[in-house]
Design a protein around this nucleic acid. Sequence first.
DNA 1: TTGAACTTTCAAAATATAATGAAAGAAATT
DNA 2: AATTTCTTTCATTATATTTTGAAAGTTCAA
Lengths: 168, 168
Amino acid sequence: MNLAEAKAQFIQTWGSLGAQWGINRTMAQIHALLLIMPDPLSADDIMEELNISRGNTNMNVRELINWGLVERILIPGERKEFFVAEKDIWKVATYIARERKKRELDPIMKVLNQLQQAEGDPKDKEMKAFKDSINNITKFAAQTDKTISAFIKSEENWFYSSLIKLIK
Amino acid sequence: MNLAEAKAQFIQTWGSLGAQWGINRTMAQIHALLLIMPDPLSADDIMEELNISRGNTNMNVRELINWGLVERILIPGERKEFFVAEKDIWKVATYIARERKKRELDPIMKVLNQLQQAEGDPKDKEMKAFKDSINNITKFAAQTDKTISAFIKSEENWFYSSLIKLIK
DNA sequence: TTGAACTTTCAAAATATAATGAAAGAAATT
DNA sequence: AATTTCTTTCATTATATTTTGAAAGTTCAA
């Protein structure tokens, strides 16, 4: 396998992976491409490499920037904008975790809290089962929330602890 | 909020959550419904509660069974089949983790291993960057794999460690 | 202020995914 | 073995998502 083949393979695999993750295929492919390229790419570079339209490129690059996975770069003397991806895969993971927590876990926790207040006959079998389920899920969600938050913060904690070690 | 409203709210929230998770909306809704119902439901019950077709019901219940989240129950004297969901939310989480690891992490690890073998001029900048990325991602994936495997096994470990405590 | 170079938007088209329901298939009952 | 009850399949239809590309918008240099 040569470099071009390997690149294509990586981009396509990362793309279908992303699709399963609620991130759309093109967004994941652009991300994959930027991940493996040492230098910044322009919108035209991305369009050409992935054979996608300008609009599609623009939309998905913007979304990657929203997620914090990609940065807009201005190269002195160039009119065009260029883009680079965060290369530290650990950071990448924490950014994705942050975004997904916000979109997925936070909303369901909000609903679960409301559902705790559901009113009804406490002797009713269905009511009891419902309250039980909601309580268990709420506890589990709270636990998950803690774990993910710790992970998200691990990056900055790592930074601070390194700093502290240096000072000591 | 009364029970019926709370139920509907829970089912719809769990459903849109599932959609973001690569699990389809109906599958997640059926799961939600079975999670909060104390007794087994038949296909007809599910169809009526969620207003979906027989075919759709059949397909998604089967998929839930594949994931290990739902069990087919035979009630003596009844011709129909009934379904119940695993209620222990911790178990539910490990089953989902197991299935998603199989579908998502395992395939990308396989590809990453192949990509390690990509051939090319080791002095080439792009080649170096590519190998670097792939190596880092591979390491991260291996770490993630370990963590998830530990989580998946935690359920049985919990069982064994309880057992051992009893014997001691 | 004009126009060239580039970016962004968005309605329409293309594609992908999910749902329906009638028909075929099984299994139990008479 | 014929009938009834229930389950499964799958071609068709419906829905949702993604992509395109032309037009509008922006920025900058002359």
